Simulated assay, not measured.
Amino acid sequence: DLTVKGGNANEFKYPGGGGPAPTALVPDGKDDDKRFEGDGGALLVERGGSAHLSNVKLVDNNAEGDGGAIANYGRTWLKESKVVGNHAQGDGGGVYNEGILKVEETHVDDNTAGGNGGGIANGGGEHHDGPVDLASAAKPGKGDKGEHGKHHAGTVEIIGAHEGKDASLSTLSHNRAGHNGGGLFSSGGWVTVSFTAIGGNVACENGGGVYAENTDLLLEKVHVAGNHADGDGGGVVTTGGRDWAGNGAEKDGLAGSATIADSAVVDNTAGRFGGGIFNGEWLVKIEDGFIVRDHDKDDNATLTIRDTEIKGNTALNGGGIFNNKAKITLTKTHVTKNTATDSSKLHRVAGGVLNNEGRVKLDDKSLISNNDPTNCANTVEDCFN
C-alpha cells in the first residue's frame, strides 16, 4: 500500500572530468559494487537481497542505468501492483532483472527504455553504452568491459489470476524500447508468461511485444496484440541468437527453445519480417533474397506453437510467421488473414508463413488460410496457396 514516485537513480560523477571514477580510485574488490550505480529508479535489490511488494505503485521514476523503477539482482516479488510511466536510459524501462523475479496480477505499462525491454528486461544482452545498430554489434570488445560489464539474465515469471470473481490478468502494455523488446526482452535465462495481455508495445528494432534470445521461453494463455517493431517480429521474436566473440568474429550462441500455447498473436505489425512471429537467425539482408551469408550455420532456435491463433498481422514479408534457418512445429494452430506488403520480384511473398532455409511442420489439425497475397512461400509442408 505504498507509492514511490519521482525517484532518480543517477551514476555518480567525480568532480573535474565529469565522468565515472578512474579505475585507480576504486579500491580492490569494490568494482562489482560500482555496477549498480544508476540502476533502479525507485528500488535497487542487490545480490543476496529480497523485496516483496504488494499493492505498490511505482510511478514516474528514472534510472540513468538499468531498471527505471526496479533493478533486481536478488529476489523480487511484485503482486497486485503497478509499474507505470518509468524510464531507464539503459535496459528495462519498468524492471531490469538479473535475479529471480515474480510478477503476479501486476500492470507494467507505459514505461520506456533507451536500450532493450521497454517494460521488463531479463538481462541486457550487451552493455548499454555499447553498439546500438545491428551492423556494429560485431565490433571487437564491445560488451566485455565497462562500468556495468556483461549482463547476465535471471528467471522471470509473469502470471495473472485466472479463477474467482476478482481474477485479473497481468499486463505489459504501451511500453517502448529504443532497441529490442518493446514489452519484454530476455537474453538468456528462463521466462514464463501466463494469463497476461501484451499489447500496444513498440520496439525501434526487433520484437515489438516480446524479444527472446538464447532463452527458455514459455508463453501460455497470453494475448499478444497490437504491438509494432520497426524491424523484425511485430509480436514475438524468438532466436537462438548469434553471439559475437571478443575479436569481432562469430561464435555459436546458446540454444533458444520457445513454446507458445493456448494463446493469440493478433494485429501486430513489423517494418520488415514476421508481423506476428519471427523465429530464427535475425540477421537477414533484404537485397540478398533473404540469404544472410554463405558461411552461416543454421540457427539453433526451436519454436513450438500449439492451440494458438495467429491472425491479422502485417509485415513486409511473412505476415503471420517468418522462419529463418530454424525449426517451427505447429499443432492445432490457425494462421489466418495475415498480410505481406512486399512487392519485390526477388522474393516469394507470403502473407501467412515464409520459411527461409528452415523447417516448418504442421499437424493435420493446423490451418494456414485466407492470407494475402499467398498463404506460404518456400517449403512449408501441407500448406496450399
Rank of each mutant, 00 (worst) to 15 (best):
G85L: 06
G90S: 01
V95T: 07
V132I: 09
G118F: 11
D133S: 02
T112D: 10
N86E: 02
T23Y: 13
D60V: 02
D33E: 13
A88V: 05
A137I: 11
V59K: 14
A24L: 01
V26F: 11
G114M: 13
G67A: 02
H127F: 03
E46L: 09
G92W: 00
G130N: 06
D33G: 09
V132W: 07
A135T: 07
A71H: 09
G90N: 00
K34M: 15
G125C: 09
N62Q: 12
W77L: 05
H87N: 14
A113N: 15
E80L: 04
L58F: 06
A138M: 07
V84A: 11
D109E: 15
D31S: 14
G38C: 00
E105M: 13
F36Y: 15
E98D: 12
R35V: 08
W77I: 14
Q89H: 08
H52E: 13
K34F: 15
D66V: 02
D91S: 06
H107W: 15
I70G: 01
V103H: 02
V95F: 09
N61D: 12
D28Q: 15
P27C: 08
T112A: 15
H127S: 13
V103M: 05
N55W: 12
Q89Y: 04
K102E: 11
G114Q: 15
Y96Q: 04
R75W: 05
I120T: 10
T106F: 00
V83L: 00
V108I: 13
L25H: 13
G125N: 07
H128E: 14
R35A: 13
G40I: 09
S81R: 02
G99F: 01
N62F: 13
K34N: 13
A135V: 09
N55R: 15
V26E: 08
G125Q: 09
A24W: 05
D133M: 03
P22N: 11
V108N: 00
D91M: 00
V95S: 07
G85W: 04
A137H: 11
A69R: 02
A137V: 10
T106C: 05
N122K: 07
N62L: 10
E64K: 09
K34I: 12
G117A: 14
S81Q: 02
E104Q: 14
G118E: 05
G124H: 03
